Amino acid sequence: MDFRLTDDQRALRRGVRDLLEGRFGREALRAAVDRADGRCAAGGAGRTGGADGGPREGARVLDRELWRELGAAGFFALRLPEDGGGVGQGLPEAVLVFEEAGRALLPGPLIATHLAAGAVPGAATGDVVVTSAAGGLVEWLDEADVVRGDVTGAEPLAPVDPLTPLHRLPVTGGGPPGNGALRAARTPDGLLTSLLTAAEQLGSAARTCESAVQHARTRKQFGQPIGAFQAVQHLCAGMLARVEVARAAVYAASVTADPADVAAARLLADEAAVRGARDCLQVHGGMGFTWESDVHLHLKRAWTRTHRPGGVAQSEEELADDLQAGPV
């Protein structure tokens, strides 16, 4: 099976990267972080409803203009058929797009809105922000126009990632806390959520790997670039190896859409993103731990994504069941 990208797929990836670099570059990212930090300092955690039940405009962190631009570019309608107003692309193309979103640390309930594009009016065009209550955590509940699922009793959490506000759902049914997430991961939307999350993790892992290599080439110590030291070389090599293994798994899963392949891709991508960000911090040294550095943002987002449906526990369960079932 040939997993090499076609010319159209490479053009799609370049186009999305150019769009995000122009519209959500580093300055826009840091401005969004500052807005989120300012809202938390003002006591903005929890629902801040206006007269219509939605968030007050002044309380918003999510850039609605950017959201609509993403809709106009076909981000959310990518997999909808052309005769239905969509772009008519497939899952492999969606993976490429979400990989670029992860690379740019693009905020917002991107996957939930993408999955709702064919069912919720306005989601495909970016006029409506959709979030999902699948699993134990709900992202961007305060700023969503539509919530798919029951969020009764949801409690706000202090988020690790400043650009991923979270609410926790109460445990129901008397089962262990992981049961809801496991059931959510095995639904069709849960499977797609896991795969597209893996794509975002892959993009983030690739970006931190590039950042580490660039720093290792330019930062000098004892009269030479720190990349000349074997310990730093080993960190960068390990990051690259995890990225490329995860890339092969994610791309393959986008073609097969097999639950076991998706589970394997998710495990590898989660590891590449989290360990890659940690190793990138080590390469940057003390400056990597400062607020001004973007490395910690990748680490915090990677940690947060691991708690979505299809995370480590659910993916391991899926792979275990597949192994026990044996060959078909």
Score class of each variant (00 low, 15 high):
G190L: 02
T197H: 11
A228R: 03
R207N: 01
T193L: 07
A241V: 02
G223N: 11
F222E: 14
R242K: 02
A249T: 00
L191H: 11
Q233N: 06
F229A: 12
Q214S: 12
L192V: 12
Q201T: 08
R247I: 02
S194F: 03
A206Y: 04
A241I: 03
A212T: 07
P188I: 07
L240Y: 01
T193D: 11
A248G: 04
E200K: 14
I226N: 03
L202F: 04
R219L: 09
E210Q: 09
F229I: 05
F222W: 14
H234Q: 11
S204C: 05
V243D: 02
A237P: 00
Q201K: 04
V213Y: 07
H234C: 00
A212D: 10
A198S: 09
Q233T: 11
G203M: 07
L202N: 03
A198I: 10
Q214M: 08
G203V: 06
A249L: 12
L195H: 05
A206H: 13
A249P: 00
T197I: 05
S194K: 02
E200D: 04
C236N: 07
A184W: 15
A246H: 00
K220G: 11
D189F: 13
A198L: 11
M239A: 03
L195N: 01
L196P: 05
S211N: 02
R219E: 15
A198R: 00
A185Q: 02
R219Y: 13
P225N: 04
L202P: 04
Q224H: 11
A241M: 04
L192H: 13
R219I: 02
T208V: 15
T197G: 12
A184F: 12
Q230W: 10
H234L: 13
M239H: 00
A248V: 01
C236F: 01
A198N: 05
K220N: 10
T208F: 11
V245N: 07
A198D: 06
V213R: 14
F229R: 10
A185V: 04
A212V: 06
E210P: 02
T197S: 15
I226F: 08
P225I: 05
L202K: 04
A248I: 00
F222P: 07
A212Y: 03
G227I: 07
P225M: 06
Q224L: 13
A205Y: 04
P188L: 07
P225H: 09
M239N: 03
L235H: 10
Q214Y: 02
R219Q: 14
K220P: 00
H215A: 14
R247G: 07
T187P: 10
E200Q: 15
A237E: 12
S204F: 09
S204E: 10
R242F: 03
A228M: 12
K220V: 15
C236Q: 01
